[in-house]
Structures are given as C-alpha cells and as structure tokens.
C-alpha cells in the first residue's frame, strides 16, 4: 500500500536532493549532539567514581569537610533557571526581535557570571583544601571541571551577543542552517543538567549505596535472621570439608601450574586435580 507512494516520492526527490548535495551540508548541530554524548560520559564516569568511592568509605563525609547547602543551592537554581531565560532569547530570535535577543542573552550571561562568581566565593571560603580528604578532592575536581564548561558556555553566549551588535543579525541567524544560539543553548542547558545532578549527588543523603544508611542495616538484618551452624553440627562439617577441598585444589593447582611442577600436559593435570 505504501510502496508506490514511497517510490514515486523518492524518485522525485532525487533531483532536488542532488542539487542540495553539491554544497557541503551544515551538520554542526548533529555533531554537537554527539559531542555532548561524549562530554556526558566524562561526567558520568567521574560521578560513578565519586559514588563508588563514597560507598566504600566508612565515614561520610569526612570530618572538617562539611559543605554548606544554601549558597550552592541558590547557585544551582540560578544556573538552571538561566536555561529558561535563554529559551526566551531563542523565541525572540524566531520573532526577529533584536532587542529581546540582546536582553535575554545578556541576562543569561549575567546569571552565568553570578554562578561562576558564587563558585569562586565558595572556593575561597571552604574550610578544606584540595588534598584535605578524598571528599575535598572530589569536590574541587568535579566542580572545577563543571565550572570550566560553564566558562566555555559563557564565552559562547558573549560571542552571540557580540555578533548581535549590528542590526539585522537576528534575521541572518534564523535563516541560516547554522544556529549559534541553539548551539550555545544546548551546551548551556547541558551544563545546568550536570550542575543539578552534581548538587544532588553531593548533598542527597538518601538513595545511594551508603554504608551507614543502607548496607550495614541490611547485613545486620540478614545476619540476625541467619542461623550460623554450630561448630560440631553435621552441616558445618560438610561445608568446612568442602571449603577446605576447594581451597586446596586452587592452591595446589595454581602453584603447580605457575612453577611448572605439574605434568607438561596441562589438560591431564586439570583432569587429575579433580581427584582432590
């Protein structure tokens, strides 16, 4: 049913697509999307390292490395809401409203600068240094890495503003395939996303595998419900013998293999070792 339609349209399209093909297509937004996938993976890798380390450490957070929640919280809210402000700027471009573009992008840049200023203030007033504790190290490296991205985003926004200084800019931006504002906006929203997830990671005490609130109570519960067999009970003896044999097999096997004392035919050895 569909195939005749499809065939006719695709034949018709060939000439027009051929014409379009002669110019180099502008695919920078697609490239940006793939680039952000890669960037997200750096952050996800660092988050994973942080969360795993956190779940391994007995005491969290280490003493002397308490972060305050108010200033970073306000900062996070400013950065996230600046994405919406920027969206107004994008709408202004579509309406060909130059004043709107300058106002909303200027406001976004201001909010980004406030965020960076707040971060610098926080760095200067924290009671710990880079190497004070493992938490402190993660804190500085991850927020610093994020701040670096915000700085790049801010520079891109300023570049858009610089380009908008001449009249008629919005028109050229919106008609060309290449849209610096949406390029910038994508990066900016992505910064906000990772800022908020870092904030949640850092401050949320519930819901992560944390020894003091999740794992140990579970283990305590399991231990309290499990009957540990008495030393002279039959089940204990069976398990002990089995464990002993396994360990012996592994130990003898590996040492013999490594030193070459076993038969040269490893398969024979492998089979014969099952006798233990």
């Amino acid at each position: 049913m569909q195939s005749p339609t499809l065939n006719s349209t695709s034949t018709l399209n060939i000439s027009s697509e051929t014409a379009a093909h002669s110019e180099h297509p502008d695919l920078r937004m697609t490239g940006m999307a793939f680039f952000l996938v890669a960037e997200s993976m750096i952050f996800l890798g660092l988050f994973a390292a942080f969360l795993i380390t956190r779940s391994m450490v007995a005491v969290w957070q280490p003493e002397g490395s308490e972060v305050e929640i108010l200033l970073p919280g306000i900062n996070t809210i400013i950065l996230i809401s600046s994405s919406f402000v920027m969206n107004r700027g994008a709408t202004a471009i579509k309406k060909n409203d130059e004043a709107g573009l300058r106002f909303w992008f200027g406001l976004t840049a201001l909010m980004g600068a406030i965020f960076l200023g707040g971060q610098a203030y926080e760095y200067l007033h924290t009671p710990f240094g880079l190497t004070t504790s493992i938490f402190a190290s993660f804190f500085y490296v991850l927020t610093g890495f994020h701040g670096l991205h915000v700085t790049f985003g801010l520079m891109l926004i300023l570049m858009v503003l610089w380009r908008s200084r001449k009249p008629g800019t919005t028109l050229s931006i919106s008609t060309s395939e290449w849209k610096p504002p949406s390029f910038t906006g994508t990066l900016w929203m992505w910064c906000g996303l990772f800022c908020s997830s870092w904030f949640i990671c850092c401050n949320c005490k519930v819901g992560v595998a944390h020894p003091s609130n999740l794992r140990s109570p579970n283990i305590d519960y399991i231990l309290s419900k499990t009957e540990i067999p008495k030393r002279d009970s039959p089940s204990f003896r069976v398990r002990a013998v089995r464990l002993h044999n396994t360990r012996r097999e592994v130990l003898i096997g590996s040492s013999a293999l490594r030193t070459g004392h076993c038969s040269r035919n490893w398969l024979n050895f492998w089979l014969s070792s099952k006798r233990y």
Binding site: M41, I42, G45, L46
Partner: peptide
C-alpha cells in the same frame, strides 16, 4: 569511542591529580 573514551579521560585526569 564516544561512550567509553571519555571515561578513560576522566580516570586519567583523576590519576594526574
């Protein structure tokens, strides 16, 4: 490459620190 190389980059940055 897109999904895994950045994670190595993250590990190397931490190792460099």
């Amino acid at each position: 490459i897109l999904l895994s190389t950045p994670v190595l980059a993250g590990a190397l940055i931490l190792l460099a620190f």
